[in-house]
Write a protein that binds this DNA or RNA. Sequence first.
DNA 1: AACATGACGCGTC
DNA 2: GGACGCGCCATGT
Length: 116
Amino acid sequence: MYQQATSPMARIWHVVSLIPSGQVSTYGKIADLAGLPGRARYVSRALKLAPTHLNLSWYRVINSQGKISFPENTANFIEQVQLLRSENIKVNRGRIDLSIYGWQPDLTTLMFELTY
DNA sequence: AACATGACGCGTC
DNA sequence: GGACGCGCCATGT
């Protein structure tokens, strides 16, 4: 908002770290909040490249259709389902109800946490 | 330099 | 819902 103090990827990681437990967000929404509208694909790349020491809750990010983006029957898919369910999120065939679990960041969060 | 590839999104049919 | 097409752009070949 005042300057690009951090790299685009670092901003993405930051935003993802703000998603509360038990809730999910989407690639596109994360991109918007990170100041990268239209860059959903970049978010997926950022998650893949995220250093493990960040302990990022990558599994809280799904696609805009409310579905897990990994193909079913892949290790990643299985793991994501387990992690989501461990936070009491209902997952049916890779689908999550965004109207129930979708993260709705409030103004306070945006103003005090996203002042790049 | 040129082309292909994504943990994507959106409009259209 | 599903299947395309197109936009997006950093990376890899």
